[in-house]
């Protein structure tokens, strides 16, 4: 990979991709190109001024965080919580249940070679 590509990628690729994606979304919403001029202006500014590109990155981080929260929340209620019912019925850890003793026998140590 050439150095100039790496530099280009780090500095501009996100901007270009962002504009492309935004263009697609805008078209999808509006079904026309009325607002795309604004997008072109944004693209040019971000390509020209590093501060603009940084702001764009921060914006995406923000969006990313909101996105993650939404995705995880959906995942939690759609998959995880129902699975929790299954867990509590069939696979529940003894430690979470009422017992007369909480001692758990342990006779050997696992291998050092793996993270489990």
């Amino acid at each position: 990979m050439s150095l100039s590509w790496i530099r280009f990628r780090n500095r501009h690729l996100l901007t270009i991709n962002f504009s492309l994606a935004a263009a697609l979304v805008l078209y999808g919403i509006r079904r026309d190109f009325a607002w795309h001029l604004l997008l072109v202006v944004w693209l040019l500014l971000a390509l020209r001024f590093e501060r603009m590109a940084k702001f764009q990155q921060l914006l995406l981080v923000r969006v990313g965080r909101i996105n993650s929260t939404l995705i995880l929340t959906l995942f939690y209620f759609l998959f995880f919580a129902p699975y929790g019912l299954l867990y509590r019925c069939f696979f529940r850890k003894p430690a979470f249940q009422q017992r007369a003793s909480t001692f758990e026998e342990k006779r050997k140590i696992g291998s050092f070679d793996r993270p489990f």
Binding site: L14, N17, L20, A21, L24, V25, L60, G64, S68
Partner: peptide
């Protein structure tokens, strides 16, 4: 989630 927002291809995932 693993697609970090700083990854240049992330806008396509987010869209």
């Amino acid at each position: 989630l693993l697609v970090s927002p700083t990854n240049p291809y992330s806008p396509f995932i987010y869209t």
